[in-house]
Write a protein that binds this DNA or RNA. Sequence first.
DNA 1: GACATTCCGATGCGGCCGCATCGGAATGGA
DNA 2: TCCATTCCGATGCGGCCGCATCGGAATGTC
Lengths: 198, 198
Amino acid sequence: MPKQVDYEDRRRRIAGAVCLLIARSGMESVSLRDVATEAGVSMGAVQRCFRTKDEMLLFALEDISQRIGERAKARIETSDAPRSATTLLDRTLSALALVDPEDRAEAQVWGAFVAHAAVSEHLAAVLRETYAKLHDLLVWLLGYGRDTGELSAILDPPAEARALLALTEGLTAQVLVGHQTPESARDVLERYVRGLMA
Amino acid sequence: MPKQVDYEDRRRRIAGAVCLLIARSGMESVSLRDVATEAGVSMGAVQRCFRTKDEMLLFALEDISQRIGERAKARIETSDAPRSATTLLDRTLSALALVDPEDRAEAQVWGAFVAHAAVSEHLAAVLRETYAKLHDLLVWLLGYGRDTGELSAILDPPAEARALLALTEGLTAQVLVGHQTPESARDVLERYVRGLMA
DNA sequence: GACATTCCGATGCGGCCGCATCGGAATGGA
DNA sequence: TCCATTCCGATGCGGCCGCATCGGAATGTC
């Protein structure tokens, strides 16, 4: 058995380079050459990892989707003190909205993929899967809050979760473009959650 | 004075071709050649109308922005019967959310420009202007509803308008990707407006 | 150290890109 | 009709694109 390589790791490093390039100058300026340079490997290595460019982009989306999903879950599970449902909800939504300056790059990449998914069914499928997971997470949080009596008993968790997820997505885009500031976006979320309280 | 041409009209026809191509296969596959073909003119004519490709895209965004803004206003002004503020609000939001199947192409184009604006300050400026106008429209509607007593007197119109605009944007994206159906999106909007009622 | 196998850097190919150029068609006034 | 002016279709240029190819470097086994 000669020369072996950790493809999984290299794939992720290449995905990182893809995201960096998207954040720097948009989806349409992502070329295999630039990705290879940015990742510090040769074009040949990139081609060995991914049969086509589309495959590479798909992997990059799966990678960033997973990262966002896991980060949202982590915000809940790593709460050292027992927190109120509304606090958990607020923290989770803030994480999903990607409005903080340090999340800007990730928000750009996410938006680029969402737009591209409109003309690529493969990408759209990955996004739907991610949205579904986030939806379930929010449904659970809302149900939990209702059970503890913090949130209004009237609310319909699935319907509210759809609204919340759409709201965070919209806020992400609007902060990105500069129509809202990170502060105003957080304020919108805070007000919304307050409106859900019993 | 020899040969004269209605540039404004041609510009708009070219912008239409740009939008059609974006809807068909995404922003990154918009080339001057394809645009010219789609618009039924030669590349030279396109180049005469727009000095660069970026200028052409900018104009296309301005065109579609104007169309969306005017359509939203038209939905209010053309109400033949005196309608309730909540009905007006609901109709306006439905128009802005671009969730109906016949709006799909427009939603795709809008999303593509939003994503591209993340790396193009010129485009972002146009989007901010459009968002500002839509925001003002919603503020007016909310204030009107509050004055007539239909909407809760507690609400803060500017803050609510920010939430509503973000919500419609998010719904547009999620319907586009297929995470929500047009029906569920309209349901989210209807529920939200109902929650604002006094 | 010889070898089998895996890996990949370098290179080439055909094609499309945005943009510049320019000769001639089109047009309206003198 | 003739001309001045506007317009633009055709063409070319340099460059980047995704992808295919292949000779040889790297590496673990015997």
